[in-house]
Design a protein around this nucleic acid. Sequence first.
DNA 1: AAACGTAAAATTGGCGCCAATTTTACCTGG
DNA 2: CCAGGTAAAATTGGCGCCAATTTTACGTTT
Lengths: 248, 248
Amino acid sequence: MKRLKPPASPTTAVHGMDDDPVVQGLLVTISQKRLRPGAKLGEDRLAEAFGTTRIHIRQALAHLASRHVVTQIPNRGAFIHTPTWEEAQAIFAARRIIEAAAVEAAIDRLDDRAIEALNAHAAREAADSKNDRWSSLALTADFHVLIAELSGNPVLLEIARGLILRTSLAIATFETPGSHDCSPEAHPDIADLIIARDKVGALAALSHHLGEMEARIRPAGAVADPNDIGAILKDVGIKPMRRRQSHV
Amino acid sequence: MKRLKPPASPTTAVHGMDDDPVVQGLLVTISQKRLRPGAKLGEDRLAEAFGTTRIHIRQALAHLASRHVVTQIPNRGAFIHTPTWEEAQAIFAARRIIEAAAVEAAIDRLDDRAIEALNAHAAREAADSKNDRWSSLALTADFHVLIAELSGNPVLLEIARGLILRTSLAIATFETPGSHDCSPEAHPDIADLIIARDKVGALAALSHHLGEMEARIRPAGAVADPNDIGAILKDVGIKPMRRRQSHV
DNA sequence: AAACGTAAAATTGGCGCCAATTTTACCTGG
DNA sequence: CCAGGTAAAATTGGCGCCAATTTTACGTTT
């Protein structure tokens, strides 16, 4: 038996490249700063690591390149994008705008499920202090994504997701040696102010929080350390390939 | 003679998929509403129309799909994206946020070149009344892009460009029969208020302008008219292909 | 010994071919 | 005359091979 389908209705199903395992794997690896800006993303190596073909890798890399997460250079390959200092400042400025609007919208449409989600994230972040530093980095970023989700605007959420990810690239590029992405106690404060529906307080706390993040980067801190991705991807749960080794 | 180049510095040159002629051609054709939401974008047909290969078309379509301008359905092909009503509302809400911030930033860093650019665009728009309606549609969108450019934030500009383009898709999908994209006299008013450095006035005029645009769409106005792209692309200056014709 | 130039290896880019699915057209049956 | 089913055509998806460029390694020269 065949089920008949609409003749030419493009609203049936979406491709959903964001759900791609290669894209997701690269994204979380970047948000955890295991892949640093400038790292080479070889097609054959990634294909072997993720267990797929080279064409699939190319599509994923092209998708990430259009999101300004990966930079593709003709005949050179794909690299984790290294933001310029001007781009880093622009990302922070854009985050101030987007996230302030998201906080306002989240307070306007605050309900029990939103409060529960904020508390759940606060609990998860409080219990995370003794985890490995990789997952805690992704967790602090998730708080900002959660606020964007609570805004109820899917377009705003998508923009925020991109900016938050690019922020980790900016921080990884220009950070001063000993610095964290987010001060630990800033997120519960913002969450409480949102739950209390204190707009001006929440906006001030958010602005202060983003200011602290921006204060940790310096224009001269650009590192040129594209460490090899083999050992990194192996730790994520992917089997690496060993091709050859340059001897003495 | 060979010129030596940096060893592995990814900041040397960018790929720049946005400069691709296929992407640009499709983008302007969409902003002019010659390609309407739901239109099928066949790979062979586009390759023949633009005079390139099918692989190049695929890359361009994937890029546009990651920007939510094109929807790709597996084994079905690529279509001009048809926003949902919720997405259309979210786009307008996001534009209010982004463009308000852009106007504020533009006023803060206003200089002579910015004033000249605003006046130049106003003059071009005033002299455009008797042009064909295709280019005037793109011109009204350019005004909003110009404001985003004057904000001085390249990230904000990129976000605004995407939202403005997706707005034309939203309007084309849900517009009521006789409606224009922008009321003609709204842009000079906003430009004058920006030049006068009147923030609250410019923000109010912008909000009113976007409100007028949003008021012209209705949730039931979804059209299912994906007219063929052959005649449209032929008019843009591309040679179409004639394959076969179904006789009587 | 350091630097230049050359050659080999590796990687990316692109084209063509073929399988899988969909769309269309046609034919048959009610 | 309309509906359902079947077959042909068209289109997309994917894999493999080969050219072009880059990167690395090595040998030669000053």
